[in-house]
């Protein structure tokens, strides 16, 4: 079976600063792949390389190969790539419009104008993001009135609405309380059967709870990739051990 994402000798720079060094990562289909590591270890850059959001920064350069389902992403147009690879940002980023319009934004941009089709997509996406029951009676009220946790699940629904294959999470729970975090994690588990998910997190416990496999990044390099259970109980590298036992980072 072809891997969902595969990077080969990926190197990234912002200006003269190298942020990623020779990163080889392989993400299987339908797994939740965790990326842990201290701040400034290149986790977010790696994530944003996959849907080419890094390219919005003028000083960004990159070498190496990134494949999405076996195809070099350089051959895929920006708009298509970003549809296939959705991203959830660190802080809930909702647009100051209604709940409905937030979810329908992506499909509308891709040319779906039919009202009933849009309603169907919005309902389905909100259901999959476990938000439907909480918001179904006020779809047209402003999204900014939702709580932080609801907003983050709305962001997930908005991403689901464009039918991605892969969902990237960039520290999605860093601004949330434990209950909201649990709801987001539960949602991620439910999404497993349909989507490949990559989770960048500062929270090693969260990685241990949610991820199938994990990679440990340190200063732009991949130190170790392993099954979550193995990585957290019996890491092969001393530095991984130091990190997960809380000795630095």
């Amino acid at each position: 079976m072809v891997a969902a994402i595969e990077t080969t000798v990926l190197n990234c720079w912002f200006g003269s600063l190298q942020v990623l060094k020779d990163v080889d990562i392989l993400v299987e289909r339908n797994e939740i792949f965790g990326i842990i590591g201290p701040a400034n270890s290149g986790k977010t850059t790696f994530l944003r390389a996959i849907n080419r959001l890094n390219a919005l920064v003028p000083s960004y350069r990159q070498t190496g190969l990134i494949q999405l389902a076996g195809r070099d992403i350089e051959e895929i147009e920006d708009t298509v790539l970003r549809r296939r690879v959705g991203i959830i940002f660190a802080l809930p980023q909702v647009l100051p419009i209604s709940i409905f319009d937030n979810v329908a934004y992506g499909p509308r941009m891709h040319g779906i104008a039919n009202r009933s089709t849009l309603e169907q997509i919005v309902e389905q996406s909100l259901r999959r993001a476990h938000l439907w029951d909480e918001v179904k009676d006020r779809l047209h009220s402003p999204a900014l009135r939702l709580s932080g946790g609801q907003q983050q699940r709305l962001c997930i629904a908005r991403t689901l609405a464009v039918e991605p294959e892969v969902i990237l999470y960039d520290e999605p729970c860093s601004g949330l309380d434990p209950i909201s975090t649990a709801k987001v994690e539960e949602t991620m588990q439910q999404l497993k059967e349909r989507y490949t998910q990559v989770l960048v997190t500062n929270n090693t416990k969260q990685a241990a709870r949610v991820c199938d496999r994990c990679a440990f990044f340190l200063m732009g390099q991949v130190i170790e990739v392993a099954q979550t259970s193995v990585l957290f109980t019996n890491p092969a590298d001393q530095r991984t051990n130091d990190y997960i036992t809380g000795r630095f980072g």
């Binding site: 920006d78 708009t79 549809r83 940002f89 991403t159």
Partner: peptide, 9 residues
């Protein structure tokens, strides 16, 4: 970023 990340041009 939100808009671009959803595949808008």
């Amino acid at each position: 970023e939100i808009s671009l990340s959803l595949g808008a041009t």
